[in-house]
Simulated assay, not measured.
Amino acid sequence: MKQIRLALALTLGAVIMPAAAVAQGIPVAPMEAPPQTGAIPLGTGAIPDMPAESWFTLAGRSTVRNVSTATLLPVLPDKAKATGAAVVIAPGGGFIMESMEAEAMKPARWFADHGIAAFVLKYRLDPTPAGMDAFRSAALARFAAAAAMGAKGGADIAAPAAALADAQAAMRLVRARARQWNVDPGRVAYMGFSAGAIMGTDLVKAAAPGTMPDLFAAIYPNMAATTVTENAPPLFVAVASDDELFGKQGYALPESWRRAGRPVELHVYEHGGHGFGFDGKPGTTSAGWNAALLGWLRAHGWLTR
């Protein structure tokens, strides 16, 4: 299948891109980089000629762009409730930004509250202009291209090589330090939102040693068909039927799992659009979708020791 990367413009919480958000009157503003105490460099290298890492808020939610070096931030449960299960979380943002609150830290805290060790992946990104105005223009152009792609039904989409390498390094690191974090190396899940979900699909497709998730939750992912290996993990998909980017693709991604004889669970919400975030979009049927995720985790034993 034809692979398309530069046309991507994926999620940022309740809206798709900052440029689109600005056009809708949703506030976007620079912010100081928050403390990232405990973040572990993944050692996968740096993006050459990358402008300085820049943080901003989108409707009050922290977001980052121009990430040159990847890190992994542990968010660990209280030892009394720890189940031994773990999850690597990769936020979305079209590979030019990452929604660090709505699609990373918020679900990480939720997992930890349920006894699951969470690890937030801040992966390397494509460079964007240093100035906010130029960035907005670039983001809007990418959003328009992605919306046009989605209207045509889309195509197979590959994660950038750097981002995929970061996801693979994150999976290996969690397993390598499993004893330190009281984690079972055979119970390491991966959850990705939009661009992060595309990385997860590529993790499964690549099937590199030590990197295959034991569970894979894909939240509003690209829905195109993919190669599914015989040891592919159980798949959970949550998507809205009115998704502006992937809503016209059908359901070939979960169908690929089904045809390969691998476990799959699909939740399609009538309304929610693309980027409904961890809690879903208020006032739509996507609200509270994570209750379904909780049930799926429970069914696979992720909530018990």
Rank of each mutant, 00 (worst) to 15 (best):
P234F: 04
P234I: 04
P234Q: 11
P234D: 02
L235A: 01
L235F: 00
L235P: 02
L235C: 08
L235T: 01
L235N: 04
F236T: 03
F236D: 00
F236Y: 09
V237S: 11
V237R: 04
A238F: 04
A240E: 05
A240S: 05
A240V: 06
S241R: 09
S241A: 15
S241T: 09
S241C: 14
D242I: 05
D243V: 13
D243R: 14
D243E: 12
D243M: 06
E244P: 06
L245V: 15
L245Y: 12
F246P: 02
F246V: 10
G247M: 05
G247K: 10
G247A: 07
K248N: 11
Q249T: 07
Q249A: 13
Q249S: 10
G250Y: 08
G250P: 12
G250V: 11
G250Q: 03
G250W: 12
Y251I: 12
A252Q: 09
A252M: 06
L253C: 14
L253N: 09
L253T: 13
L253D: 14
L253K: 12
P254C: 00
E255P: 01
E255R: 10
R258L: 14
R258Y: 04
R259L: 10
R259H: 10
R259W: 10
R259A: 11
A260N: 10
G261E: 02
G261S: 14
G261R: 05
R262K: 08
P263Y: 09
P263W: 12
P263M: 06
P263K: 04
E265Q: 02
L266R: 06
L266P: 04
L266A: 03
H267R: 14
H267Y: 06
H267T: 02
V268S: 03
V268D: 03
V268H: 01
Y269W: 05
Y269F: 04
Y269E: 03
E270W: 11
E270R: 15
E270G: 05
E270S: 13
H271M: 15
H271I: 10
H271D: 14
H271T: 15
G272C: 07
G272L: 02
H274E: 01
H274L: 06
H274R: 14
H274M: 05
G275I: 09
G275N: 10
F276R: 00
F276N: 04
G277C: 13
G277E: 00
G277S: 14
F278A: 02
F278P: 03
F278V: 06
F278E: 14
D279E: 02
D279T: 06
D279W: 01
D279A: 10
D279M: 13
D279P: 12
D279I: 04
G280H: 00
K281P: 09
P282V: 00
P282C: 13
P282T: 11
P282I: 03
G283C: 05
G283V: 05
T284K: 09
T284C: 01
T284S: 08
T285G: 13
T285V: 02
A287S: 12
G288I: 02
G288S: 12
G288C: 05
G288K: 09
W289R: 12
W289C: 00
W289F: 14
W289N: 03
N290P: 09
A291R: 15
A291V: 15
A291F: 08
A292T: 07
A292Y: 11
A292W: 13
A292G: 13
L293M: 15
